[in-house]
Computed example of a mutant assay.
Amino acid sequence: MQRTFILLKPDCVQRRLMGQIITRFEQKGLNFVAMKMLRITPDLAKQHYAEHVEKGWYPTLEGFITGGPVMAAVVEGLEAVKVVRDMLGATSGLNAVPGTIRGDFSSSRQMNLVHGSDSPEAAVREIALYFEESEMCEDTPTISKWMLAADE
Rank of each mutant, 00 (worst) to 15 (best):
S119I: 03
T142D: 11
S107L: 02
L7C: 12
L78S: 12
M71Y: 09
E132F: 10
P141W: 04
E76A: 10
E79R: 14
V124K: 12
T100V: 07
Q47N: 08
A149D: 11
G67K: 09
S108H: 12
A73W: 10
I127K: 04
M147K: 12
L38Y: 09
P98A: 12
M147F: 11
H52S: 03
F5A: 05
S108Q: 07
K145S: 09
F131C: 00
T60R: 15
K36Y: 09
A45V: 06
S108C: 04
L148I: 07
G56A: 06
P10I: 08
F25W: 02
Y130W: 15
V114E: 02
H52F: 11
P98R: 13
S108M: 00
S134K: 03
F105P: 02
T23M: 09
S134M: 00
P141H: 04
S106V: 06
D43F: 08
Q20S: 13
L17M: 14
T91D: 03
L61W: 10
G103Q: 04
C12K: 14
L30C: 01
Y58I: 00
G68E: 05
A34F: 09
V74T: 11
R3M: 10
E76I: 08
E51S: 15
T142N: 09
P42Y: 06
Q20T: 06
G63Q: 08
P42R: 11
V13F: 00
K145A: 03
R24M: 10
Y49P: 04
E126Q: 15
Q20C: 07
T23I: 06
E133V: 03
A90G: 05
T23Q: 14
D151V: 12
A128Q: 10
T4E: 01
A123S: 05
E62T: 05
T142S: 11
A150T: 05
I127G: 02
E133N: 03
S117I: 08
D11A: 05
W146C: 11
Q47D: 12
M87H: 11
I6N: 01
E79N: 14
Q20L: 10
D139H: 15
L7D: 09
I40P: 09
R102E: 07
I101W: 01
V74M: 03
A34R: 11
E126A: 13
M111K: 13
Q14L: 05
K28P: 10
F64G: 10
P120C: 00
L61R: 14
T140L: 13
H48V: 04
F131M: 00
V81L: 13
Y130P: 04
E135P: 03
N95E: 12
I101Q: 04
S92I: 02
F64W: 03
I101Y: 01
L129V: 10
N112A: 10
R3F: 02
Y49G: 05
F64E: 06
V97N: 08
Q20D: 13
N95S: 10
S134P: 00
K145N: 08
S117D: 02
K145I: 12
N31T: 07
I22N: 09
I22W: 09
K9I: 05
K145G: 02
M71E: 04
